[in-house]
Design a protein around this nucleic acid. Structure first.
Length: 337
DNA sequence: AACTCGTGGGC
DNA sequence: TGCCCAAGAGT
């Protein structure tokens, strides 16, 4: 075993994380956690993970449920294609893999939502086999180790990092090594102000030697946020509210949203003698967009007089609506009416 | 291969 | 406060 990985493993035994909810002998739970943890912090994931695995404790239960049930548990977590992919994969696992996760990189990467890094995590953490994790933590550690100032979020750099990470793999203790390398990034080799004096591999670190830790990693392509105006209508009776299934492109695919103002003919609604209420406009920030959301509320007496497309729209009990697969701003609105 | 996908933590 | 960025993948 190489010297570097040995130091990572020894450091992990003493200082690594060992009591996270998904650190169990169950590839299923490790898979679910890895999907949830994509671009999402540990602290945020924990309650979602507990809730999800308690409702769907295994592949079979997940495969047999509906996408809407999965989306409802995912509501608020973001990156909703993960929920769709996790459901698709469960169905594939039931059909083609005897209700269990495969233990090869090749098979894992055929599954929706599982890329190179997540496959590496499942291999090493779930099956204790050699697998490369290349999350943000590991990329940062490796770039600093090699004093590499090439942009982290660039295809070319990721490709060379992948090769570098493969070379460093130990011959044993793959679980401890993978977890240790991530933990080192999260606890010691932090994005800002890394604690190099605590680092077990500081002697191997080119960035530390050159004192350029805080200049690495380099990132490029700071895209400017585009503003988008969204105009929704909330049409309700005393007990029910009208929701609309979102399209399968752009943000919030397959989720339930409020109908867009332009889609409904306000003239027809006016004829239904609505009671109109004001709702304050608000801003909803995404990582790459700024949504300016305005809302009009209409209370109608007889919902059956409103002509709607039954395949896209759904009248939902207001008390149930907040537990459906809705994005954050819709949930906030529904909680206030 | 650059862009798109959400939301919240932390500073 | 506004900003960076988090156990990335799909296209």
């Amino acid at each position: 075993m190489n010297n570097f990985s040995q130091k990572i493993i020894s450091w992990y035994e003493v200082s690594g994380r060992k009591n996270l909810p998904w650190q169990v002998e169950d590839p299923y739970k490790i898979w679910i956690s890895e999907i949830m943890l994509q671009q999402t912090q540990v602290k945020t994931v924990i309650p979602y993970f507990e809730n999800f695995t308690s409702k769907f404790p295994n592949i079979e239960s997940l495969a047999k449920t509906s996408l809407d049930d999965v989306l409802s548990l995912w509501s608020g977590l973001g990156y909703y294609s993960r929920a769709k992919n996790i459901h698709k994969t469960a169905i594939i696992l039931e059909k083609d893999f005897n209700c269990s996760l495969p233990d090869t990189l090749e098979d894992l990467m055929t599954l929706p939502g599982i890329g190179f890094s997540t496959a590496g995590a499942i291999l090493s953490l779930g099956f204790k086999k050699p697998g490369v994790i290349l999350d943000g933590n590991v990329k940062r550690v490796l770039l600093r180790m090699s004093g590499n100032k090439s942009p982290m979020n660039q295809y070319k750099t990721e490709k060379s990092l992948k090769e570098f990470a493969k070379i460093l793999l130990p011959s044993t203790k793959h679980k401890q090594y993978s977890q240790g390398l991530m933990d080192l990034g999260a606890i010691i080799c932090k994005p800002k102000n890394p604690e190099c004096n605590m680092c077990p591999v500081v002697i191997d670190c080119s960035a530390n030697e050159k004192e350029i830790q805080n200049e690495i990693p380099v990132k490029i392509n700071k895209i400017e946020k585009k503003e988008k105006i969204i105009e929704w209508v909330l049409i309700k009776t005393k007990t029910k509210v009208l929701l609309k299934r979102n399209k399968e492109s752009g943000i919030w695919q397959n989720l339930w949203l409020l109908p867009e103002k332009k889609i409904l003919s306000l003239k027809k609604i006016t004829n239904l003698d609505p009671i109109e209420e004001d709702f304050p406009s608000f801003v909803h920030q995404l990582s790459h967009k700024k949504l300016l959301i305005s809302l009009k509320i209409y209370t109608i007496k007889n919902k059956d007089r409103l002509p709607i497309n039954r395949s896209l729209f759904n009248w939902v009990n207001i008390s149930d609506s907040v537990n459906m697969g809705v994005p954050k701003p819709v949930k906030e609105i529904l909680n206030k009416i």
